[in-house]
Amino acid sequence: MSRWTLGNVVKVGLAVLFLPLVAYLVLFIGAVKKNLRAVLEGLVYAAGFSVAVFWLGWGGPGFLLGLASMGASGVRAWHLRDLWLPKRRRWWHRFTGEQNAIGPVPDAPPAEAALEGTEGRVAALTWVGAYATQYRMRLPATAYTTVHETCRLLGSVVEAEARAPSRDARLEYELDAMVRQYVPGVLRGYLAIPPALVDQRQPNGRTPNEELTEQLGLIAEQARSLKATRDSRIPAQLTTTGNFLREKYGDRQQDAYDFGIR
């Protein structure tokens, strides 16, 4: 995706035009985007530049402080480019892009996701993957990757259960809860938060971004555990079947073609 849009070009042009005031750029970005963290950081650069200009003057320490404030603000403005220079999708993504290929995604899982068994689980996982893709620009990069990895793991368990049901009520209950409740619930809960608040500390001391990362990590770990549990039962079931066959027929191999006829 490119940042070369008319709006972004105008913004960069204005930033270059007012280059002597670049020390105030981070503060301006934070104020416009209502990002408290950027505002507080910008105040530091703006204060340093103001002290250099209006108190120390442009000689000696004042010159160094002013130059440092301008440089630091300029570098941080580039680091914060996602706030004020948003990306846009290239024109060919309208036809081949992943997001447009799936079309608009509803904010709630489809009715099919409520169906019992494999069909409902597949519908729920498909919705989660499409929903995460549609809002990928609002998700932290690690969160987006974790969501799709979790969907892949859960999808493999769903497929295995459809092919050879384990008849394990506890595993099926946990799988349903993960697919239909936990993953969609965490994703929808995070995306309901205004973007300007995702980096703000909550009363528990965590930011929504940190909460999302931890919760998705816990879910992904549980998905791996479910898959490992399901996979470990395949050899055990085969062994159980083998023991049964050996007990029933093993001692009669010498009479395999006798059929009890004398």
Rank of each mutant, 00 (worst) to 15 (best):
V186P: 05
Y257L: 14
R88V: 10
R167I: 00
R81Q: 12
T5W: 11
V51Q: 09
V10K: 11
S225W: 11
G60W: 15
Q202Y: 08
A220G: 03
A236Y: 04
E211R: 12
P208Q: 05
W58R: 01
F95V: 10
G7C: 06
F18G: 06
A223N: 06
P203D: 04
V186Y: 11
K34M: 01
P194N: 07
F95W: 15
R252M: 03
D231Q: 01
A38P: 00
P165V: 06
A223D: 09
R167S: 12
P208Y: 02
A236C: 00
G62T: 14
V147I: 14
L115K: 11
L218A: 05
Q200M: 14
W84I: 00
T240G: 04
A46P: 03
L175N: 04
V53P: 00
P104E: 13
L83I: 05
D258V: 14
F54D: 05
E221Q: 15
E214G: 01
D82I: 00
R89I: 02
S2I: 02
S73E: 05
E172W: 02
E159Y: 07
L218N: 13
R136Q: 14
L36G: 12
M70L: 15
L67R: 09
G57C: 07
I261R: 01
E174L: 10
L25E: 09
R201M: 06
L139S: 04
Y24H: 10
E161W: 13
E247H: 15
D199W: 09
G74N: 08
L139C: 08
H79L: 15
A46V: 00
V9L: 04
L19M: 14
A196K: 08
M1I: 07
K11H: 12
E98A: 14
D168E: 11
A38Q: 06
V9I: 12
A15K: 03
A111H: 07
Y24V: 00
Y131N: 07
R89H: 11
L80S: 01
N35D: 15
G260Q: 07
R37W: 08
A123D: 03
D199N: 15
G217C: 01
P140G: 04
L212E: 02
L67P: 15
A164I: 10
A162N: 09
V32Y: 15
W58S: 08
V51R: 03
H79C: 12
R201E: 12
L27F: 10
S225D: 12
G42M: 13
D251I: 13
